[in-house]
Design a protein around this nucleic acid. Structure first.
Lengths: 208, 208
DNA sequence: TTATAACTACCGACCGTCCGGTCGGTACCA
DNA sequence: TGGTACCGACCGGACGGTCGGTAGTTATAA
């Protein structure tokens, strides 16, 4: 009935292919990356690569799902085990940030290339992203209920958090001024306490 | 000696072309947008469009420069006239955020598609972005010198700020829960004071 | 007032190139 | 003997870009 993988190819090799493809797509962008580019990087030909993949879009889709699974396993699931919402959020932001900086990451790709997918694929990816977003916002909602949150909209705050974290991939460089841990720590500080020292001399918020 | 525009085309029409092209590229991405797409959106043919532009890359380059000029004129220059660094930063963050949400924007494009340019073009754009970045970080440095800043790295904080602002283009929708002004205000709040209320009951940071 | 030259704003048809994808094979290993 | 891992050659189509036009408008000048 429907097209399927003709055989059961080596799974380790497949993971290598995902990793290599993710790196190239991350650097050049999905559209600017040809299947040939990926094949060459793996030391094979395009026809040879097609032994493993079912199409360029499906490859991208698989990589994105791989990235989302990483996010679930290394950030969301461990975080869910933390009862205190502030500590949970602190862990999630730091772990997510480290995942971005550590990559070579498939996670970063799914930030940029959603439009390249078919609509059904987009829906699936968007749904998984949404679940992660809801997890973060839920934690903020808990904090709000406990009176620990500033007077901010939790949706906007969650997007702000994600913006800072995802932006890391644009500026963080290994061997730069900040280590991965330092970068993650900086993000947590800024997200939690902002950049300004609490000023009590000037009524800058709350009223009006 | 070198290729030049064969004539002096109507400047208003050229601006229309930039605006239309920016919108499409913003929606579909540079590589996925064909010159034909842009021409059709303008009700003309590809050959007709080439009367105005010198190539696809140069069109992108021009749009990016247009966006950077907008940023200079509407954010950086007015901000520079503000003496107080906190007020200056507040204005810059809010104005920049509004520029992102108001667009239809050429500003957003230059966030994503730098790699599509030729290396010399990339250098010019990166240089202009760098100037803006330095302006923001300089303001943070002033705040630090005045003892008004949290204990954060000004470079990381500037990138954090830009991450939140640029991320707006991914989630902000007109007619959504937040107006442009509300979104800008939320970003300022989060950037300045963070998401957590200053806790004095629990030593959550500083040590360890 | 009108002939005409010059210029702007386009278009239809076309070109070379590269891309995603296919197909029929082959070498190798179990 | 059959499955896995690949490859060379090829295909149709889309893309960026070019070229030789043409319709319309303005400038000039007799």
């Amino acid at each position: 009935m429907r097209a399927q993988k003709k055989s059961a190819p080596n799974n380790e090799r497949l993971a290598e292919i995902y990793r290599a493809a993710a790196q190239i797509i991350l650097r050049k962008g999905y559209d600017a990356t040809s299947v040939n580019d990926i094949a060459n990087a793996l030391g094979m030909t395009k026809a040879g690569l097609y032994h493993y993949i079912n199409g360029k879009k499906e490859l991208l889709f698989d990589i994105m799902n791989f990235g989302l699974s990483e996010l679930d396993e290394e950030v969301a699931e461990p975080a869910r085990a933390i009862a205190d919402p502030a500590a949970r959020l602190r862990f999630a932001v730091a772990a997510h940030a480290r995942l971005v900086t550590r990559g070579q990451g498939a996670i970063t790709i799914l930030v940029d290339e959603i439009t390249a997918l078919t609509p059904p694929q987009q829906r699936k990816i968007t749904q998984r992203k949404r679940a992660y977003f809801d997890f973060l916002r839920g934690t903020l909602d808990e904090l709000k209920a406990a009176g620990q949150l500033q007077d901010v909209d939790t949706t906007a705050a969650t997007f702000g958090l994600l913006g800072m974290i995802n932006w890391l991939s644009r500026w963080f460089r290994h061997g730069g001024a900040l280590s991965e841990e330092q970068a993650a720590d900086q993000l947590v500080r800024i997200a939690f306490h902002g950049i300004l020292r609490p000023a009590r001399l000037k009524a800058v918020d709350s009223s009006q």
